[in-house]
Amino acid sequence: MAVNLEFENKLWEMADKLRGNIQPSDYKSVILGLIFLKYISDSFEDKYNELVAEGEGFEEDRDAYLADNVFFVPPSARWEFIKKNAKQVTIGQIIDDAMIAIERENRNLRGVLPKNYARPELDKTKLGELIDLFSFNLGSKESKAQDILGRVYEYFLGKFGSSEGEFYTPPSIVKLLVGMIEPYKGRVYDPCCGSGGMFVQSQRFVEEHQGRKDDIHIFGQEYTATTWRLCKMNLAI
């Protein structure tokens, strides 16, 4: 398995929580949305604690986060609040409201985040138990350096496949392709962009070669709406 994340052993437990409740091909949609929420919340919390330590009262100042390319996460969308309410029967709606709040605060995410956790077929007890499994920190520098969403997406496609014929290009192949095209500047186009791995790897290539990210422009197409949203989420973080 190409995925080598410190929380990989948790992914199977997460899938197991959803077993018998929804279709296996839908596991990734539920879990990826929560991982995104956890990721931006952990990143926000790290910056929040840093601002508190500085003692200048900027910990609730949106611009202080924007300056460091960190999403501002409103109180009702922070992971601490989500986890505190994990056992509530309204947890699905709480998560949907959190996604809406994040989109409201961050314009480039509007219409992108999943907001279907309140749907009847998603068992709320299992959803709460799923949230309890998120004991790992995704805001660390190590996590930020990885294509987190793309690699989790790869994991679930590999384990459970998809009824829509989706396939994931292994990171090693993507890295090889990027190394061949050497995107120092210009346009990068991926006609089947999936979770955006080609774009993430291109950005990494530029950074590793001391280039400027502003010198490349990315363009992509994706047939599946859910995967397109995942790509937007992946690029956002």
Rank of each mutant, 00 (worst) to 15 (best):
E121F: 03
G186L: 04
G194N: 04
N116H: 14
A225E: 14
G186D: 05
S195W: 03
G220C: 06
F199W: 05
E164F: 14
R107Q: 12
T226L: 14
L122P: 05
M198K: 02
E208L: 12
F219T: 09
I148C: 09
L130I: 07
F167K: 00
S162C: 08
H217F: 06
A118G: 07
K213Q: 11
K159E: 10
Y155A: 03
Q221P: 01
V152K: 02
G111F: 07
R110G: 03
H209P: 06
G111L: 07
L138W: 05
F156N: 01
F219N: 05
P120V: 00
V152A: 03
Q210A: 14
P170Y: 02
K213R: 15
R110M: 09
K124Q: 12
M233C: 04
V178R: 00
M198S: 05
L138T: 09
N116R: 15
K124E: 02
S202C: 08
E166L: 12
K232P: 08
R104V: 12
Q221D: 12
S202Q: 01
S172A: 11
L149D: 09
G196H: 06
Q221I: 09
L138Q: 06
S140T: 15
M233G: 04
E182H: 05
W228G: 13
G150L: 02
P170D: 00
I131D: 05
R107P: 05
P171K: 10
K185C: 04
E207P: 04
I218R: 02
E105A: 14
M233Q: 08
D214F: 12
N137W: 01
D132Y: 14
E154T: 07
Y184P: 01
D123L: 07
L133Y: 06
R187Y: 15
K232I: 04
L109F: 11
T226R: 15
D132Q: 14
D123S: 10
P114R: 12
G197H: 05
A225D: 11
E207G: 08
E164Y: 13
Q221W: 08
L138K: 04
I218D: 02
G196V: 08
D123T: 03
L130G: 07
E166Q: 15
T226K: 15
N106G: 03
L138A: 09
F160A: 04
F205G: 03
G211P: 04
L138V: 10
S135D: 13
L113G: 06
P183Q: 06
D132G: 08
I181T: 11
C231N: 11
P114Q: 11
D147F: 13
A145C: 06
Q221A: 11
R204H: 13
M233E: 04
E129Y: 10
R107Y: 10
Y155F: 15
F167I: 12
